[in-house]
């Protein structure tokens, strides 16, 4: 069967497993019996045509929607497991260590860039300040934690090349920088799984190259697994290790980028071909691929 995952990924250790996820909005079945696994240390891409239900899957994973059916398990490095569909949204970030960004950027535009990153370290600082009381009395533990939090923020600002704009209001940044800031902010929560909703939307080619670099270095340095929704195929095919394709709320393909690229169902979904013509399309694609393969390297 075409949906069978390739043997190389089978051996890997899943960090997130979504099983039989369904989400119904009134009469609309936005997601129908959707299952997939994201592996630890991988960049997993979730792609699909507009309205396929990708963002709905994200909202279910990060707790902004409660799924109608199904189970979402997050397995941390320590071996601890969390059932995300049972946790309230903020606990998913706080305990299960899943952070997310949004399709339409959600900045704290009136706070400075640095403050944005400090807000992301809320839970850590809250504990250090003895739930505000000890901090209010001026205990040194909070001062120390506060210094460390600024250092962590500086680290991520450097990564996102925003350190020059650290004291400017976030709302003053250009679009591409806001995208990077949102990723840096999500990383400041110390996640094990980072969910990015269309991180390359609205970026120019140079900015999306920089984004690829940023995502690779995030994975390389912190070992954070990344799950992303993306329309920009140059980003998806370039950086992802594993691609899951969604159409009309159902999984139509799952595997490594090359496998997915050549999957007739995916091609049909993207190009909108009748079922009978799929075979034809496959042949065409193979021809093109053969031609490109020669010129590529």
């Amino acid at each position: 069967m075409a949906l069978e995952t390739t043997t190389t990924t089978m051996k890997k250790d899943p960090i997130l497993s979504v099983e039989h996820l369904s989400m119904r909005f009134g009469g609309l079945m936005a997601i129908n019996d959707f299952s997939f696994e994201a592996y630890r240390g991988d960049i997993t891409a979730l792609i699909g045509p507009n309205g396929a239900g990708k963002t709905t899957v994200f909202n279910c994973i990060t707790g902004f929607y409660k799924p109608t059916m199904g189970m979402i398990t997050m397995k941390q490095k320590s071996g601890k497991e969390y059932l995300l569909e049972r946790l309230p949204d903020f606990e998913i970030t706080k305990q299960a260590k899943v952070a997310r960004t949004f399709q339409n950027i959600r900045m704290f535009s009136g706070l400075t860039v640095l403050e944005n990153l400090l807000v992301a370290q809320h839970n850590k600082l809250m504990q250090a300040s003895g739930y505000t009381f000890l901090g209010l009395l001026g205990f040194p533990a909070y001062k120390q934690a506060s210094k460390e939090s600024i250092e962590l923020a500086r680290h991520w600002l450097e990564k996102a090349s925003l350190v020059d704009r650290a004291d400017d209001p976030a709302g003053d940044l250009p679009y591409g920088a806001q995208r990077r800031l949102e990723i840096a902010r999500a990383m400041c929560t110390g996640p094990e799984l980072l969910c990015l909703d269309e991180p390359a939307a609205g970026l120019n080619p140079r900015e999306s190259l920089a984004l690829n670099e940023l995502l690779r270095s995030i994975r390389g340095e912190t070992g954070t697994s990344i799950l992303l929704i993306e329309h920009d195929m140059s980003v998806v095919m370039e950086i992802s290790d594993h691609v899951v394709v969604l159409e009309y709320g159902q999984k139509i393909s799952d595997g490594n980028p090359d496998f997915v690229k050549n999957d007739p169902r995916v091609i049909a979904a993207y190009l909108g071909v009748e079922d009978e013509e799929v075979e034809e399309v496959i042949e065409e694609i193979e021809e093109i691929e053969g031609g490109q393969g020669g010129s590529k390297k």
């Binding site: 990060t62 902004f64 949204d89 903020f90 606990e91 998913i92 970030t93 706080k94 952070a99 997310r100 960004t101 949004f102 959600r106 900045m107 704290f108 535009s109 009136g110 706070l111 403050e115 400090l118 807000v119 992301a120 370290q121 809320h122 839970n123 600082l125 809250m126 300040s129 505000t132 901090g135 209010l136 909070y142 506060s146 902010r185 999500a186 929560t189």
Partner: peptide, 27 residues
Amino acid sequence: RLRRMPIGRAWEALREDEIACRSLGIN
């Protein structure tokens, strides 16, 4: 003092964007 505490920053963040607050693990 509170403005420089996590709780004060969380208040201001709440004013700016509540959904983003929740996505960052703020109750």
